[in-house]
């Protein structure tokens, strides 16, 4: 089964995945009408910043066993076996935040949603775009990602790709760096952050 794989070292922090996700989970499914919708569509993937300003797309890992599922008081969190996806039933959710306390990745948010009863605040998180997948589309965040920080592939393929990448870096004839641009970008961000810290220290 294909899954969304996050390759954080390739994230440039453009946040297009967030926009695409919010749009995919809006009533209209179109960006320009989505921004007028009530409740305002919100993303289920969250691009955070690392210590040096590098991007980090954070989304639900659909753990098994899922800590949020065990912690859920009313039993609103369940697993969709067909898509190996942890789902939240908005009708049953009581917005108690027990799942926020259980999720080690911090990917659950609480707000109104088009799939929930009107005006009801519920726990919302990534659903692997099951609605899109049943139409033969890939998850919106992957579709929009230009830097391959998000890929949609089987675990075996992802593992093989990663192994090959590592193997190439240790080979004697290693000429090809996986992603020189990304490494440079992140190195620059880190240098910039350290420069700022040092300058402000000197200023004091």
């Amino acid at each position: 089964m294909k899954k969304v794989v996050v390759n954080p070292e390739r994230c440039v922090g453009c946040m297009q995945c967030m926009v695409a996700c919010a749009t995919a989970h809006s009533k209209s499914g179109e960006l320009f009408s989505a921004i007028c919708e009530v409740p305002f569509p919100k993303p289920r993937i969250h691009v955070g910043v690392g210590l040096y300003g590098e991007g980090f797309p954070n989304r639900c890992r659909h753990c098994d066993p899922a800590p949020c599922m065990l912690a859920c008081l009313p039993g609103a969190i369940y697993r969709n076996a067909d898509f190996d996806t942890v789902m939240i039933d908005p009708d049953t959710c009581i917005n108690c935040a027990s799942c926020a306390m259980a999720c080690p990745f911090g990917v659950i948010r609480y707000h109104e949603d088009i799939h929930a009863p009107i005006k009801k605040v519920v726990a919302v998180k990534c659903d692997n775009c099951i609605a899109r997948q049943t139409k033969g589309l890939i998850p919106a965040c992957v579709e929009v990602c230009k830097s391959n920080a998000l890929t949609f592939e089987t675990s075996t393929d992802a593992l093989k790709r990663k192994t090959n990448e590592v193997a190439r870096t240790v080979s004697a004839e290693a000429k090809q760096v996986t992603a020189p641009g990304f490494n440079l970008l992140n190195a620059m961000k880190k240098a910039q952050t350290e420069l700022k810290v040092n300058c402000s220290r000197r200023g004091n």
Binding site: P67, A97, C99, A100, M101, A102, C103, P104, F105, G106, I108, R109, Y110
Partner: peptide, 10 residues
């Protein structure tokens, strides 16, 4: 702002 609370608990 308790979204990341689970991270601390972990």
């Amino acid at each position: 702002q308790i979204d990341q609370g689970g991270l601390f608990a972990a």
